[in-house]
């Protein structure tokens, strides 16, 4: 898992205020929904990640599971991003 990618996701989660708690208190595998991520905020998060990384989530990744944790998001993004970005 690339630390850089995880840090980017963390920075974005903190900046946009998606969660009910401080993102620093959230582990990479912690459930973001339990941390206050609502369904509608998930859509905002999807669009923010797409803008930030210049990718588009395909239909098969538009599930709650994709957005469930920082680690899950990093896994999905690594799949969508060219290797040099995630490396």
């Amino acid at each position: 898992m690339s630390d850089r990618l995880v840090n980017e996701i963390r920075a974005l989660l903190a900046r946009e205020g998606f969660l009910a708690v401080d993102v620093a208190a959230i582990g990479d595998r912690d459930d973001l929904y339990r941390a206050g991520l609502t369904s509608h905020a998930t859509v905002d998060l999807m669009l923010a990640l797409e803008d930030r990384f210049g990718v588009e989530f395909p239909g098969r990744l538009l599930t709650r599971r994709t957005f469930k944790s920082i680690e899950a998001l990093a896994t999905a993004l690594r799949e969508l991003l060219p290797a040099e970005v995630t490396g």
Partner: peptide, 13 residues
């Protein structure tokens, strides 16, 4: 929209 698929999955779940 595409984001609606997440909402739909959540509603169904």
């Amino acid at each position: 929209g595409r984001g609606g698929r997440i909402l739909a999955a959540s509603q169904e779940e």
